[in-house]
């Protein structure tokens, strides 16, 4: 029972960060219908930015979120405006290849700049934990989880309550109709890609204290992010939040009750099953 609870708790905590990665991706997909295969590499950039400001300036990873977020926002907006925008109406495989190419450029440029050495951020709290009724809770993960929760809540507020947020949602719902309504869909796309990559960057910053950093780290997360997004319903922010938590817990439990080597496999099987029986995802609306 203890093992079960422990797995669920650590699954939820890790899942919180997964959720953040997924939310970024789902916003990009929702607004642009572009499958962003460079998402994990944006996360990787966030990790390197965190590592840089930590090792050079001594800024705590959780504080540096305030730097990496805006930085990645600008970078994402730039990518969208100069490159992604040109393939919005292209064939899906061309969009995929473009983002794969961008991912390769990002990860390999980083490799040239910083070599492929593994970087480890060692903070005073990197392996701290406290015990709650016999269940150990990782402090940095808990903090990351709380920050994720705050950011997600802020994002909801932004999407639901502000004009810009509503414009983004309208664009996601129906691009042509939104344009007819006088919404600047171009600007919304730039904004969406910026927000999406900022979230990936923030997620990168949040996992930096408990994980390690190397140029190819992104690919692990890209696929996971897709699973999360589809699970929750493409374009659904609540769905992605839920999807992230579900994936975190599923991985954690399958490592214990099935086999450590099979936890990713279980996730993909779950994903495929969902695609078949409810392709719109848990919370997604069926699109015509």
């Amino acid at each position: 029972m203890n093992v079960f609870l422990q797995s669920v708790i650590s699954g939820i905590l890790v899942g919180g960060v997964y959720a953040l990665i997924g939310i970024g991706l789902t916003i990009i997909f929702g607004v642009m219908r572009v499958i962003n295969f460079a998402h994990g590499d944006l996360l990787m950039l966030g990790m390197y930015a965190t590592w840089l400001v930590f090792s050079r300036l001594g800024i705590d990873p959780f504080v540096s979120v305030a730097i990496t977020g805006p930085l990645l926002f600008l970078w994402g907006a730039f990518l969208q405006k100069t490159l992604i925008n040109r393939v919005l109406n292209a064939l899906p495989q061309n969009q995929i290849l473009l983002t794969i190419g961008l991912g390769l450029i990002m990860s390999n440029s980083i490799m040239l700049m910083f070599t492929s050495d593994y970087r480890i951020l060692t903070t005073t709290y990197s392996s701290s934990s406290f015990s709650l009724g016999g269940i150990s809770i990782s402090e940095p993960l808990l903090v990351a989880f709380l920050i994720t929760a705050v950011i997600t809540a802020a994002l909801y507020w932004f999407l639901l309550r502000t004009d810009t947020g509503q414009a983004i949602r309208a664009t996601a719902q129906d691009r042509d109709a939104a344009q007819l309504m006088g919404i600047n869909v171009q600007a919304m796309s730039v904004l969406a890609f910026g927000i999406g990559s900022a979230l990936a960057g923030v997620a990168g910053a949040l996992i930096s204290p408990t994980y390690y950093i190397f140029p190819q780290v992104g690919s692990t997360f890209t696929l996971k992010a897709f699973v999360i997004v589809v699970l929750g319903g493409m374009g659904s922010v609540i769905g992605a939040t839920l999807g992230g938590l579900i994936i975190g817990v599923t991985e954690s439990l399958s490592a214990v009750y099935i086999a450590s080597g099979l936890k990713e496999l279980v996730v993909f099987v779950l994903f495929l099953g969902l695609l078949l029986f409810k392709p719109s995802g848990l919370l997604g609306k069926t699109r015509a």
């Binding site: 422990q6 797995s7 890790v14 990782s138 692990t220 991985e251 214990v256 990713e264």
Partner: peptide, 8 residues
């Protein structure tokens, strides 16, 4: 490369 070995 998995970020979480806690359950294992």
């Amino acid at each position: 490369g998995a970020p979480d070995y806690r359950s294992t």
